[in-house]
Design a protein around this nucleic acid. Sequence first.
DNA 1: ATGCGATAGTCAATCGATTGGCCCTGAGAT
DNA 2: ATCTCAGGGCCAATCGATTGACTATCGCAT
Lengths: 343, 343
Amino acid sequence: MTDDSQDRGLPRPATLKDIARALKVDVSTVSKVLSGGGISVRPETRQSIIDEASRLNYRPHASARNLRTRRTGAMGILLPNIMNPVYSSIVRGAVRRAEEKGYVMLVADVDDEASSTSVYLKLVSERRVDGLIIAVNARSKEIVSAIEDNPIPHVFVNRRAAIGRSVTVDDQAAGYLAAKTLAEAGHKRLAFIGDSDDLDTAQRRRAGFQRGCKEAGLPPFLDVVGPYSRKGGYDSTLKLLDAKQRPTGLFASNLLVGIGALAALRACNIRVPEDISVISMDAEDAIYTAPPLTAIATSLVEMGARAVDEVDAILHGREPHDVVIEEPPRLIMRESLGPPPAQ
Amino acid sequence: MTDDSQDRGLPRPATLKDIARALKVDVSTVSKVLSGGGISVRPETRQSIIDEASRLNYRPHASARNLRTRRTGAMGILLPNIMNPVYSSIVRGAVRRAEEKGYVMLVADVDDEASSTSVYLKLVSERRVDGLIIAVNARSKEIVSAIEDNPIPHVFVNRRAAIGRSVTVDDQAAGYLAAKTLAEAGHKRLAFIGDSDDLDTAQRRRAGFQRGCKEAGLPPFLDVVGPYSRKGGYDSTLKLLDAKQRPTGLFASNLLVGIGALAALRACNIRVPEDISVISMDAEDAIYTAPPLTAIATSLVEMGARAVDEVDAILHGREPHDVVIEEPPRLIMRESLGPPPAQ
DNA sequence: ATGCGATAGTCAATCGATTGGCCCTGAGAT
DNA sequence: ATCTCAGGGCCAATCGATTGACTATCGCAT
């Protein structure tokens, strides 16, 4: 039905001017019809403009529009490590929600404060994005002052920070749930693997874990830290096994850490869950570990999507909120949790 | 040392005009000094422009520049699934190389042909990117004709396609290596898990595997297909175990499939490698499985980076190449490979 | 004194879309 | 017959940077 051939000979995409010329009207008329501006036009003129636009497959030149309106229709997301499934989940949610809302998403994957800062500055001062989603550690002075000096609508995701709104899950509840679950299974000596990088997320999980332990009347737990990575989890677990009194229940406060922990335990010939029970975070993929990990599911993809919603809210002048995803963390029971070994 | 306070009161980022006005020179002079144009200026004028620019922290407005020069300084990448570690690795390489070269990277994560096509069209017709990296299945008619009708510099990554350059690893060699390795360990009955989606990547791996089997004088192998995902690997493995003659050596032609295979074997109480040996792809993270997977390492991150290089080459009018990453696939020996069970 | 060529810039158009203001025409009101 | 007003749409400035064409000044040679 569509006739491709008559669009040929027009090597470049159509512009307003092309439509205006074809119809002998002014470009401003075309613009107002197509982009909604307040103008009255005869129905047949309007329709002919709309028809010609779709015939030429017209789309406004993003940069030209941006130059005039100061809106790019783009958001950016600043990630510490896109190979970490936590962040690829967040990215998925963000990218897709952005697309639904008509934005494009610009992704930056950085590994230290210096590059976070320089990427931030580049994105903002070249005015490439309308708003930014920030998932990198927000405690660094450098990045904080970059944000303060060159402000742009932004929200933190999976982080909380003093200088902006944030979208997180209820990390406290997750930690609490882990402690409660281990306690109810009969464990008395617990351990917590956190993050070495002073991450607020890890701190909230620890606080919740602590509260859970206290409520259950348990003694202080072993607390070790290492980077949130497979290797970090592996190494932290090895450290844990050196303790005079080995724990029988372990909460790995991150999926990669949980996977690393499992590998370390296996390497030391410690059975899970017969000798040590393990609970991890971020259950979805954890089903394919050996043994399948009991884990606490949170809505990572949803978090990314909601971050886009909040940035969009700011851009539309609506009041932004600090969002804590409503869906509470929930326990997915699998095989890595059991009763403690009989004495 | 830097005096932040004097930049205040200038709520918007500096423009060429700001610099020009401060120095009482023409904006065109400023532009030519800052962006390299052929012009002769007195050294002191030049220096004062440079100084003022850095004092005001000037950066060219990306859209304004783009409008004039028809270069966005942006690339896009079209992904089928960013939560698949294969693609998050590629994205990492692409995003970082892009940043090194001064591009920003626009990421789209799509799940079917229709949305691939519409995202492609959006990016191209709004002229948001200078070039595109395409990692989605390139066999769909719809996307192919979208590309042909609205061409833009592009390369395929981890894919080969008739309508453009591609950057891949030597998938044939990987398949061949897997077959050889299994054969040398003494296995006679092999199986291959491929992809159901008619992926050219999987086909090349299969072809290499076949060649390896033939060279080793082995009979035809079991060939099952399923989606490249954990669940796909799980299900495919279950199918495999139904065979009258169970294979003793299994090549999972994708990491997620390998992880799924391990889970399925474990669920069926089949020991690895005592009962069945498994070789997987994409070794890096596979060390943390149980048992650690013997796998074939390829340079996924490098592939993403090279894709950026090729797009950049096209944009600079250099001759692009079909790149096959030089570093050959190599076997990482771990615990999932052993001799076949005695009879 | 005149001319020539550097040197050191300036001028003005342009990229494509948006937008506030202005103008023309015809119909209805007086 | 004249005034008003609304409908329909055009004009021109603007966003910020780039770029080819052009000009003014000076030194120097003729």
